[in-house]
Simulated assay, not measured.
Amino acid sequence: MTEVPKAQPLHAIELAQFIIAAYPDKGITPMKLQKLAYYAKSWTLVAHHPFIQADFEKWTYGPVNASIYNAYKKHGADVIPLGRKPAGISPEQGQILTFILDNYVDYSAFTLSAMTHNEAPWLEAEESAVISDAAIFTYYSNQPFAKNFLKLQNAAQQPFHVLKSNSWHSFTLDMDKEEAETFATYPTAEDYQHQSQKAKHDFQNLLREIDELL
């Protein structure tokens, strides 16, 4: 990831269009779109590159941007059809957004919603109130994943700090603290992606073997 220069602001609908176009095979429903957009804004704030101009309110199922809601609510719980990629996103903006979203996009809408429900910005906001940038920055900048944004330049060669999601906690549940921490950091983001894909492949093979035995 390279340093992100000052760029034109990215508005809510442009962000939504980017997410839908960038992940055509990830089952992006309106609910999932909202949570991905929220995390994109949150981590760009932490990275000190606040180019996303979109407010998120505290709704029952997590943070919601009203413009995105009104634009895509007609799809209900269905996957949103692939649309055009917005023209106004710079390569640098696209790069940082992809870096962030790659860590969330494989989760279901309900898993992402549950994640926001366990985090202070949503928990502490008043019902239907805008979740403030200050609350977002204060909380997420103190999470381990924030260390990935300390040096955006040459980030591909920097140690990668894993997003400590519900699945990470489940994976390390039976480990002691020292052992669990060995799975919290990888030499690079590429190494983490490689190991993650290998683990998924091995798990799928195991499920096939079990199915064949039954």
Rank of each mutant, 00 (worst) to 15 (best):
K177R: 05
P187S: 09
F18E: 01
T2K: 09
Y107Q: 09
Y23I: 03
N166S: 08
K74Y: 04
M1H: 04
Q53Y: 13
Y140N: 06
D106L: 08
W168G: 00
M31Q: 08
W122C: 00
L207R: 13
N103D: 07
Y61T: 03
D176V: 04
I96M: 07
S90W: 14
K177W: 13
S113N: 10
V130I: 15
E119Y: 15
A12I: 13
F137N: 09
H161R: 02
Q195H: 14
S108A: 13
N103E: 13
T185N: 07
L10K: 00
V64F: 11
P50N: 11
A129D: 02
M31R: 10
Y186P: 11
R84P: 10
K164C: 05
A146S: 08
P63R: 07
Y140L: 05
K41H: 04
T172W: 08
E179T: 05
T116M: 04
S113K: 07
T2N: 09
A180C: 12
K73Y: 06
K35F: 11
W59Y: 15
A156M: 14
Q53V: 08
T44D: 05
F203A: 13
A12C: 10
W43P: 01
Y140M: 08
I89A: 05
V79S: 09
P9V: 02
A12Q: 09
A54Y: 08
N65R: 12
A22I: 03
M31Y: 06
E3D: 08
